[in-house]
Design a binder for these strands. Structure first.
Length: 596
RNA sequence: GACUCAGUAGCUCAGCUGGUAGAGCAUCUCCCUUUUAAGGAGAGGGUCCAGGGUUCGAGCCCCUGCUGAGUCACCA
């Protein structure tokens, strides 16, 4: 905050001021009531935002599970929990409420005379019944019991206000058959106010917990090999390691452009040059391209590089790693439901060369074909091509169009054409191809891996080829990174590297069709709020000025004098009436407009 | 970027052929000491996304814009 302010003092302050204005106006009735409750609590000496730590003895789930196991245990005589009020069911001198903490929900029973044993029933009658709302945080101390209907419940002997909520939460209700009512479902609101989404939609929280568990399981797997988790620059002078359009920014002190990374590959390989056996990084990458349900401008990729290995080893490593991950987030099972499909992550996965894949799905053999011949094949298959496309791009088009959607179960597509893989070693048996694989799942690329190119002279030539593509009009061909070539010239051991899209993998393992569902805060257009009109507009001024000397006028006369169209007249009068400038009265003659 | 659909109370959604804006939940008042989508009685709450137009009259019809979703295109 301070940094931003220093850099753009004027804009920042302007923004804050504007924000405050917008936020303080237009309170709904319920928001006003909650502010009044806040004040009332303070006046009763109940601090709505106390500073002190609240010590809870249990999470909701621990009580529910523990009590079910042993109802007699003495621990249940006195427990304390803290969380949000999610429902309130008041029945005169007793009430039930559900408290939600980070683990789940538990019911609380408030009995007026148990909570307030003395003369003063204010805590129950006034603080709880009148001034606490759904969404407020409270602490409850009491004993655990079972209601007549058998629900495990805490009977409160103490209630502490922990934090007052000033906005009403959407209320999502469930009946006994599990049908959900009034769910908070509007995607725009859910993404813009993810905090609300997380509070009221349990499954959303679950998705994000799974996301973290996926990453933890990977980390666990890599660490068991003693590979090192590292961090490399996000601000890069040359955006390398992938073909994509970067975001550009500027460094003031150095006075140079810097790019947000599109990949971290070239930095991780420098670390292999430096002598690490294996390095990996969970990296945020940034690409200045279109957005849709599988693309967000910033996304997370895990890349790993291991010395003295080739892509065969990496395939084996990848399928075992994924099997481990899937089992650890799906209770030991390798099957995953995704929409109406079942995916099975049991290793080993199928392996198909790109040539065989195209042969199988189109009948064309790309082996040894020239650029012109490939162009003809594209034409034959009805695939649109552009002049800037080289052999690699053409083959990629054919594959993407005709083959990719067919690979639903995890499948390694191997041996890509040399033109489309400038950082990859040429195939040991055929220099037209490279030692590369991509992992396809549900018709989408999820992982990408190479036997890394470590011949510095070959690498320079491949970069130069990219430069030629760029001159031909390919705006995402790679830049030449001289320092990276210098690093290779010092020598990099044979190395295999692999990158895997964490967002897409998470989508598949949590049964979500949209990337926005697996990102806490997906990128969205800025929210626009109309500022509330305080002054009168021209039409309103006009009508007011005509009326002012008269004090009151016949409506038809006033309308004629104002000369406004019907629609504008209607709007103007409604607006003036609403904001209390004028009054329209009906008498026997007709309608009369009065100043107030 | 193109097309399709949507935007009405805090939330979910009705709204007929263009004729005084509705329901459930939430909120407020009253009743109710083991309820659970608690219940009963009553009340309040609206920039119908915004701006134009047609019309005696627009939530509804027309135009423009904004926002979102979906499909396609671009893009890994």
């Amino acid at each position: 905050m301070a940094v931003i302010e220093a850099a753009h003092p004027v804009n920042f302050r302007y923004f804050c001021a504007k924000f405050k204005t917008v936020m303080s106006q237009n309170l709904s009735e319920q928001e006003v009531q909650r502010r009044e409750s806040l004040e009332a609590l303070r006046q009763m000496g109940v601090e709505p935002y106390p500073a002190a730590e609240y010590k809870s003895s249990h999470f909701s789930t621990a009580i529910l599970e523990g009590f079910a196991e042993d109802e007699k245990a003495s621990t249940w005589e006195k427990v304390s929990i803290s969380g949000r009020i999610m429902t309130k069911r008041i029945m005169g001198k007793a009430s039930f409420l559900d408290i939600m903490d980070s683990q789940g929900r538990i019911q609380v029973y408030l009995n007026r005379d148990v909570l307030c044993p003395g003369e003063d029933k204010g805590l129950y009658n006034v603080v709880f019944k009148r001034h606490l709302d759904i969404g407020d945080f409270i602490g409850i101390e009491g004993k655990v019991f079972r209601t007549q209907l058998g629900e495990i419940t805490i009977e409160a002997s103490q209630l502490t206000v922990l934090s007052k909520s000033l906005r009403p939460l959407p209320i999502v209700k469930k009946d006994e058959e599990g049908n959900v009512y009034d769910a908070f479902t509007d995607p725009e609101q859910r993404y813009r106010m993810r905090y609300v989404d997380l509070v009221v939609n349990d499954h959303v929280k679950q998705t994000f917990i799974t996301r973290t568990r996926i990453m933890n399981a990977m980390r666990e797997f890599f660490n068991s090999y003693d590979y090192l988790e590292v961090e490399t620059p996000i601000l890069q002078p040359i955006p390398g390691g992938a073909a994509a359009r970067p975001f550009i920014t500027h460094h003031n002190a150095l006075n140079i452009p810097l790019y947000l990374r599109i990949a971290n590959e070239l930095y991780l390989k420098r670390l292999i040059v430096g002598g690490f056996e294996g390095v990996y990084e969970f990296a945020k990458d940034f690409r200045n391209e279109g957005m849709d349900r599988t693309h967000n401008p910033e996304f997370t990729v895990m890349e790993i590089y291991v010395a003295y290995k080739d892509y065969f080893w990496m395939m084996d490593f990848t399928e075992r790693m994924l099997e481990h991950v899937v089992k650890s987030v799906h209770q030991g099972k390798t099957e995953v439901q995704l929409g109406d499909k079942k995916l099975n992550f049991q290793a080993p996965f199928a392996r198909v060369t790109m040539r065989d894949a195209i042969l199988e799905h189109t009948g064309h053999d790309i082996d040894g074909k020239s650029e012109e011949e490939l162009r003809a094949i594209c034409q034959d298959l009805g695939i649109e091509v552009e002049k800037s496309m080289g052999k690699g791009k053409l083959i990629d088009e054919i594959f993407g169009e005709k083959c990719e959607p067919n690979y639903i179960q995890p499948t390694f597509i191997i041996d890509y054409p040399v033109e489309m893989s400038p950082l990859c070693k040429k195939h040991r048996d055929n220099p037209e191809y490279t030692e590369r694989f991509e992992l396809m799942i549900n018709g989408k690329e999820v992982a990408n891996a190479y036997s890394e190119l470590n011949d510095p002279i070959d690498q320079r030539e491949r970069f130069e080829e990219q430069l030629r593509l760029s001159e031909k009009g390919d705006d995402e061909a790679m830049f030449i990174d001289q320092d990276f070539i210098r690093a290779l010239e010092y020598g990099m051991p044979p190395t295999s590297g692999m990158g895997i899209g964490i967002d897409r993998l998470t989508m598949m393992l949590t049964n979500n069709a949209s990337i926005q569902e697996v990102l806490f805060f997906p990128q969205m257009k800025p929210e626009k709020k109309a500022e509330k009109k305080v002054e009168l507009n021209d039409n309103e001024k006009l009508v007011y000025e005509i009326l002012k000397p008269e004090g009151q006028m016949d409506l038809t006369a006033l309308k004629e004098k104002a000369g406004l169209s019907n629609k504008q007249w209607d709007k103007t009068v409604k607006s003036l009436t609403k904001s209390g400038w004028i009054l329209v009265e009906k008498d026997q003659q007709g309608l009369l407009v009065k100043l107030t």
